[in-house]
């Protein structure tokens, strides 16, 4: 059985070490200026340290550059990409074609992973970006299991899916939280709008809370529950999906470390003794649930959902 890569987004260099200890095969890191909704902020020094540390342990490092870039940031791309090439980052995660074009020139040794978040929805387009130089497609979270597997069956690039964590529902360039505070006459200098503030929007209709924050890339709104399919990995492993991602955004390092460990064991168990894994499915879910903060329920994302249009 081919085991999928277990990819994790850690919060810090120390946390990189922890998730590697816990069994991660790869980590995705980066800085807010170029990457979207990261679990932690890694400046160049931190990225370099993480690469050294990970490579010693045979673990890969992917760097997020999947922001939507405006003209003003373009001049920074060559230098950042050349830096990543030099330190030996394993891949650059991109959504904007500008990154792809620059990467070919300034980071020829670095692999490219296509990740536009919501718009990676069919295998033809995954292969299209493959022909443009991408080695991997990160699928939209809004797909169900059958669609994911059908994409994999027809894909000429590696396929990555998120198996755990929050998912993004909305990104605006507007400063929506700040705008609301300003509208209320609050002092923006005092009020925090960043991830650290743990702000939520309450939706009275569905009685759920959506995490919301503002950063360099605008305003982000996240799913009310964490998706978790630790008990439904068999079909995806059988389908030979190449990479499983645990997204650590808005979680602390300990949680990410422990969840990584859990998925490591679950994957290994299925690879070694599939019957045991099948039998233990419920227990896997309970173990994941035990790690959850009280205010974050689990669901299965869109894997088993019917979406109409």
């Amino acid at each position: 059985m081919i085991k999928p890569e277990l990819l994790v987004t850690p919060t810090s260099v120390e946390n990189v070490e922890e998730v590697i200890d816990a069994g991660a095969d790869a980590v995705m890191i980066g800085e807010e200026r170029y990457g979207l909704r990261l679990a932690g902020e890694f400046d160049r020094t931190a990225v370099h340290e993480a690469v050294k540390l990970a490579h010693e342990r045979g673990v890969k490092v992917y760097v997020a550059m999947n922001a939507l870039f405006h003209n003003d940031t373009l001049p920074e791309l060559p230098d950042y990409l050349a830096f990543l090439d030099k330190i030996g980052a394993d891949a650059v995660v991109f959504g904007d074609p500008a990154v792809l074009m620059n990467a070919k020139q300034y980071a020829p040794k670095v692999e490219l992973h296509w990740n536009t978040e919501t718009t990676a929805t069919n295998w033809y387009t995954a292969n299209y970006w493959g022909r443009k130089g991408s080695a991997r497609a990160v699928l939209a979270r809004e797909l169900n299991m059958d669609s994911v597997i059908e994409i994999k069956e027809n894909a000429e690039v590696a396929i990555e899916v998120q198996v755990h964590g929050m998912t993004c529902m909305f990104q605006s360039k507007r400063t929506l939280v700040g705008n609301y505070m300003e509208f209320q006459g609050k002092d923006l200098g005092v009020e925090g709008r960043s991830k650290d503030r743990t702000l939520v929007l309450h939706d009275p209709e569905r009685d759920v809370k959506y995490p919301i924050w503002e950063d360099w890339n605008g305003t982000h709104i996240m799913s009310p529950k964490d998706m978790c399919i630790i008990d439904e990995l068999d079909e995806l492993i059988d389908a030979e999906i190449d990479s499983f991602k645990i997204d650590g955004v808005l979680k602390d390092g300990a949680y990410i470390r422990d969840m990584t460990g859990l998925y490591r064991q679950a994957i290994d168990q299925y690879a070694a003794k599939p019957e045991e894994y099948i039998e233990e499915k419920e227990a896997w879910r309970d173990r994941a649930l035990a790690l959850q903060p009280d205010n974050r329920e689990l669901d299965t994302g869109f894997f088993f959902k019917e979406t109409v249009y």
Binding site: T119, R141, E142, M169, Q171, K173, R206, G218, Y309
Partner: peptide
Amino acid sequence: SYSGRCTLSNHMTARD
């Protein structure tokens, strides 16, 4: 939102 980058309706009403 940035066009194409909003799935509020997918989450809230199961409409893509």
